[in-house]
Design a binder for these strands. Structure first.
Length: 258
DNA sequence: ATGGTCGCCCCGCGA
């Protein structure tokens, strides 16, 4: 089976591109981030017509996440339990596979703007809360996949300019330590299980011809639990949609599970 | 010479 993640930067604008991508890439499930719309405006009918069940957690103007799945979704959780948050950043659900239940956690991690700002402090607190919740979530659901826009470039090779951007947002020691903490829970970065092209990125700034110059970051990730790791057969970033007219600034990432 | 990001929803903010 295949599971994907894609920050689409407004579902209203990007719906036709999401539907076209799903038609060309009929993944079993996908986590979407930055819907930028309220639940009342979520296009359930369009996704149902495309063959997907959907659960969403929307918000006006900012944030918003959803999971689409070929098979029904159950035990839906919205945001981190016990962590008061006005921003809609997390949705988790269980889907049933022939191999057993699979827990899919889809997150739009906090951006954090810049070290030293209030937004950065909020990012670190959010990352702590996520880590603590995921520890219990993993104990309850051994077959777990964590997907999303992590807003962290885990290593220097995940940035087009690790020297010039050292200690700036997405690159700080604190953010990278939090990424390592997630791995420490028993999660594996599926992308790095395989040989990948150099300078593989999942996000490119709209400004200054970022994509054309491949000035990007790898900040969209798929992490798999220890139980799932042996079944991972591939993981790739699909740059194609970034070449579309009116693209999202992020590309989808896809993992294949045997 | 001008404009050189996008999406939100109305204007400057967040990414």
């Amino acid at each position: 089976m295949q599971i994907a993640t894609w920050n689409i930067n407004s579902l209203s604008v990007r719906l036709p591109q999401v539907l076209a991508w799903l038609e060309a890439n009929p993944v079993d499930a996908i986590g979407l981030q930055e819907l930028k719309l309220v639940d009342e405006k979520f296009p359930h009918d369009a996704f149902e017509a495309a063959g997907y069940h959907a659960v969403c957690f929307g918000q006006k103007t900012y944030n918003g996440v959803a999971i689409l799945s070929r098979t029904p979704l159950r035990d839906v959780v919205r945001n981190i339990p016990g962590h008061g948050d006005e921003q809609a950043r997390v949705i988790a659900a269980t889907l049933d596979t022939p191999e057993g239940p699979l827990r899919l956690v889809n997150c739009y991690f906090v951006n954090g703007q810049a070290p030293g700002t209030e937004k950065f402090s909020y990012k670190l607190l959010w990352l702590e809360a996520l880590r603590d919740w995921l520890r219990t979530e993993l104990a309850a659901h051994p077959r777990l996949v964590l997907v999303g826009d992590f807003n962290v470039a885990p290593e220097d090779r995940d940035s087009f300019d690790p020297v010039g951007l050292k200690d700036t947002i997405h690159h700080t020691v604190e953010e990278r330590q939090h990424f390592q903490d997630l791995l420490g829970l028993g999660l594996t970065d599926a992308f790095r299980l395989f040989d990948q092209p150099e300078k593989s990125y999942s996000w490119w700034d709209y400004r200054m011809l970022g994509f054309q110059k491949n000035r990007g970051l790898r900040i969209d990730h798929i992490l798999v639990s220890t139980a799932l790791r042996p079944s991972v057969t591939a993981c790739r970033i699909d740059r194609a949609p970034r070449k579309n007219p009116q693209p999202s600034d992020h590309a989808p990432v896809v993992v294949s599970l045997g």
